[in-house]
Design a protein around this nucleic acid. Structure first.
Lengths: 131, 131
DNA sequence: CAGTATCCGATCAGATACTG
DNA sequence: CAGTATCTGATCGGATACTG
């Protein structure tokens, strides 16, 4: 679904001590896109399981298109599972997997860093821009 | 330099318990772009200080254009400092700041997660794609 | 050496409209 | 309700060439 894009020539050991720098690349890529993190965090806050419309409401600003695409990628990566109930009107529930939950911890580390340090980043930006 | 892009409507408390979801957004955005993480990690591995050409060699595949842009953003954010030596030929050194170093810990958390779990992600992708 | 300038194709994500 | 389809402007990043 999401093509990784080729990325040749990175020396694993030298760059990030990872045996697979592509994994880091791809992970960072996913983490970095506009909605992924907010969707998993929301799903977690909703108790780990929610339906499409609940997520839509929980992530203000997201469009159906982007929520759909984001969930599809998360499902493909094994971070959430999708369950369809054959009812009318249709009901679909998304549940965070153990793998998905395990990603929340390192993610929270970044969130915390932002909380702690972003003011300082903003100041640096202001200083820089003032020249 | 890097325009954040407007992003209205996110409920801080509900989404990520952050007092500033824009900070998280922007951080994730930076983290997620193609070279930022590899450049800071490389800079750290090079002892926290290196010149342009050293970084160019340490991050295989990066172009001058992207290294330059990435470093400029890192400098603007206060994560590295740039020092110019008025010599011929010119010499410019980049040094990671304390703020920059502090970002390495949460970042490493993600790198470790990728090392531990990416195989599982790949399997999930294969399974998903096989349908 | 340490960049900048320009061009360009690819991807991203918003808006809007439509559907089983 | 839970999506998909289509269009579009914006941004990203690679390739290449040039410069103080």
């Amino acid at each position: 679904m999401k093509k990784p894009g080729k990325f040749v020539g990175l020396d694993p050991a030298a760059i990030c001590r990872s045996s697979d720098p592509m994994a880091v690349r791809e992970l960072l890529n996913k983490i970095g896109d506009k909605w992924t993190i907010f969707v998993i965090l929301s799903l977690d806050l909703l108790g780990g399981r929610a339906r499409f419309s609940e997520l839509e409401r929980s992530v203000p600003g997201i469009s159906q298109r982007m929520l759909s695409a984001t969930l599809k990628n998360l499902e493909r990566d094994g971070l959430v599972v999708r369950e369809v109930f054959p009812e009318v009107p249709p009901r679909v529930e998304y549940e965070i997997t153990i793998l998905g939950k395990s990603l929340l911890q390192p993610t929270q580390g970044l969130v915390d860093w932002a909380k702690t340090n972003w003011e300082q980043v903003r100041e640096a930006q202001s200083t820089y821009d003032a020249r």
